[in-house]
Amino acid sequence: MSIPTTRLRAATPTAPALILRPWTPEDAAGLAALGRRDDAALRRWTAFAVDDEPSAAQWLREQQQGWEQGHRYAFAVEEANPSGSPGPPAGHVVLKDIAPGAASAEVGYWTAAHARGRGIASRALHTLTDWAFTTFAPTGLTRLELLHQVDNTASCRVADKSGYPLTGIRPPWPPDYPLEGHVHVRHLAQGLG
């Protein structure tokens, strides 16, 4: 699948628009700046290992390769400022483990410290979910999973707000998941929008 030339937009009457767009090499400096901040939550809950421009460039190449190979679709999340132009990265959402004809895939996300607590993650995830089902349901996608460690209560709230009810518990899987994990699932039958 080619990288979309249009951006996905998520807006509400009381919140500024979010812009979801594929990450580009030009994002390296902003991504490195996010990685250099002392953001314990980002480091604790994600595998985000960016702390300088070379590691940011490598991470960005991996995201682009996912698009090119058709199994991982990662989007930068930006808040539009009043002029309508994008601001600094507020986060990341991703559709991963997608395969032609597969009924199930996984979604994930992270939010930068400066953007937390304002509903950005749930709005971005909702927009990604609609895009994923609209784009891939014709080839068989009917189920999206959101996984997080059981003690990540913020991710549980985002999942609930985004229409992903808790459906099960996964056993620990060290080192990535040292504790049990929550499995949240959204089905195409639950509708879009």
Rank of each mutant, 00 (worst) to 15 (best):
H126P: 00
L42C: 07
S85W: 01
A74P: 01
T129K: 05
E106P: 00
A124I: 08
T129E: 04
S85D: 13
L95K: 02
G66W: 05
A99K: 13
K161V: 01
G101P: 12
G108R: 10
T153N: 04
F48G: 04
A49R: 14
A74L: 06
T142F: 01
H148V: 02
T142R: 14
S122F: 04
R61D: 15
D51F: 08
A103V: 10
V150G: 03
G119L: 11
P89N: 01
D38E: 13
R123I: 02
A57G: 13
V150L: 12
T111C: 11
I98E: 00
Q58D: 14
G91N: 10
T46R: 11
P86G: 14
R43V: 14
W131E: 06
T134G: 13
F75A: 02
V107Y: 09
V93T: 12
W67I: 03
F75P: 09
T129G: 07
V50L: 02
E68P: 05
P100W: 12
E68R: 15
A105V: 07
W45R: 06
V50G: 03
T127L: 10
R143C: 10
P100G: 01
A103T: 13
E53T: 15
R123T: 08
R118Q: 13
A105R: 06
A137F: 06
D52Q: 07
G140W: 00
S104H: 09
